[in-house]
Computed example of a mutant assay.
Amino acid sequence: MSLYDDAVRVLKEFPAPAPDSPGTDEQEGLRQAYLDHLAAHPDGLWKACGAGHLTASALVVDPARERVLLTLHRKLGMWLQMGGHCEQGDGSLAAAALREATEESGIGGLTLLPGGPVRLDRHPIPPPCHWHFDVQYAALAPAGSVAAISEESLDLRWFGYDEVAGVADTSVVRLLAAARARLG
């Protein structure tokens, strides 16, 4: 299966929140927008697509399920989850998210939460592209893991769940809420 086919499959199977949950309509709308984007742009997974492209990210959760690891993004100067662009060697969106989380956190042995992505988030980016269609996963760090700052980060830090809203934007706060709901 190609990465494109995997992305379409993942989006078609994306588990939207329960009908009475906040954000259900937004997530369903984004799911359809992602599918429409891929249908209109066969190159919609790649950075070269001027109309925007899919990205894959993962919020790294500590083994005790009390903190998340955020990166102070070098270019944006914001605390964000690990993530980035799909690459030709990625066999799936999940593999891309796991690769990015591993590269940016320095933590080996991360495991994605079962059930596929936990959230979708579309955000504008500077030209020449216009949009990132981010497919967001959550990953558990193994016991004893030690994070290491990558060249893409200014800093890397664990934050308690209650600290995230004070340092990150609403997209990260929403991702954390979705990850916590998945964790149970």
Rank of each mutant, 00 (worst) to 15 (best):
D6M: 07
P142T: 06
M82A: 10
F133W: 08
L175N: 03
R119D: 10
L70M: 10
A33Q: 11
D25I: 12
V173A: 08
L112N: 03
Y4P: 01
T71V: 14
W46T: 10
H41F: 01
C129N: 06
G50I: 09
G23I: 15
H41V: 09
G84C: 03
A147F: 02
V164P: 14
V167Y: 05
G106C: 05
L154M: 09
G44C: 04
L154N: 12
D43E: 10
G83E: 11
V135P: 13
T170D: 14
L30Y: 12
T111Q: 12
P42Q: 00
G91C: 14
A138C: 07
V172Y: 03
H85F: 02
L120R: 04
A7E: 13
H132Y: 05
A40E: 15
R182Y: 09
T55C: 03
G77R: 03
L80Y: 10
G184T: 15
P22Y: 11
D5R: 01
L140G: 01
L113M: 02
P142Y: 07
S171N: 13
T71A: 11
A179M: 02
A18D: 12
D6W: 08
W131Y: 08
W131Q: 06
E103Y: 08
G160L: 05
S92V: 11
G44H: 02
V172M: 03
Q81K: 00
A64E: 15
G77H: 11
D134H: 09
I107H: 00
A33D: 15
L54P: 08
V10I: 15
G83A: 08
L98Q: 08
L154H: 07
W46Q: 09
A33R: 07
G109S: 04
G109N: 03
R122C: 13
R31Y: 11
G84N: 02
R174L: 07
L98P: 10
V10H: 07
Q32K: 00
D162H: 05
H73V: 15
D169P: 14
L11Y: 10
A138D: 11
E100S: 12
L11A: 07
K12D: 14
R99Y: 06
R174G: 06
P127F: 03
G116F: 05
I149E: 12
A168N: 14
G50L: 07
A48R: 00
E26A: 11
M1L: 01
L80Q: 13
P127G: 10
T71D: 12
V164D: 15
G84W: 03
H53M: 06
T55L: 01
G184Y: 04
